[in-house]
Amino acid sequence: MKDVLNDIKENILIHFPPDLSKCVNNTSSDVLSNLNEIRLRANKAVTANAGSEYTLDQNGFSVNANAPVMASAEDIKTIFYSAVRQSPYAFEEEIKNGYITLKGGHRVGLCGRAVQSGQEIATIKNISSLNIRISKEILCAASEVMPLITNEGRILNTLIISAPSCGKTTVLRDIIRRLSDGIGCLAHNIAVADERGEIAACANGIAQNDVGSRTDIFDAVGKAQGIMSLIRSMSPMVIATDEVGTYEDAKALRAASLCGVKMLCTAHAYDIEDMLTDKDAVKKEICSLFERIVVLKNTKRPGEIKAVYNANYERIM
């Protein structure tokens, strides 16, 4: 597991103006190491979430802040420009998508004035709010899942489903790492189509999360496009991607399956019934491509299995 405290100081607070950074640094290490996110809004108090809501004052984040520290518009501008290495032109795609990935895999969500070009957001200007989400890599998240999704050391086509924030991506990332490094199974060449950069969290093209030594990452690419391109270019044994759910995804996954590539995906759903009773039948079609469907529990600990189904949707655990 990462040293969260150092990670926050080296990769997040480095972007803060000295005054704000000093205040945050005064926070007790217990609170700091449990931080999930820091929110900055122009001319509003700086807040954080570490299980419960905290507000920043001169002594750091606390539940009952005496004199809350306000983030000025200038502070937000400084953090934004520092996060994009003073080069917003080089981060146009990320800004358009509303987030920037920092070293360490932390993500800065952006909000401000949208500049639209037709139906699409061309860019965001006058950034007024930042939501810094602290990336916490959990390297044992898939230990429970692994024996159920491998057969004689080889991966089976696996779909992980759960409600939001139950650790799908965390589990997927750990499975990728284990398969790539051959931990408890044969080592596989893996290609990741990381559309939203949540799996590998690439910053300047380098994966900030440990996704193993035999993993190729196609960052910020559409899933369907990425899968097809990766099959042609990288000849992977396994293709992994996050949050599949459209016809295009299903089509690309089917093509991958026909090429003999194993698939490792996640999807949003509360249970397998959710997937099989989908009105558009897309999710059902997606399910039909997998040999294992792992449903995660709705708990705070990522990777807790609720149920595992085989290709015939029979519960095997």
């Binding site: 480095i14 972007h15 103006p17 000295p18 520092s82 996060a83 290495r85 003073q86």
Partner: peptide, 12 residues
């Protein structure tokens, strides 16, 4: 100065 962050490019 740019990589260390926390300062404006103008200043650096």
């Amino acid at each position: 100065g740019i990589e260390n962050g926390g300062q404006t490019f103008k200043y650096v």
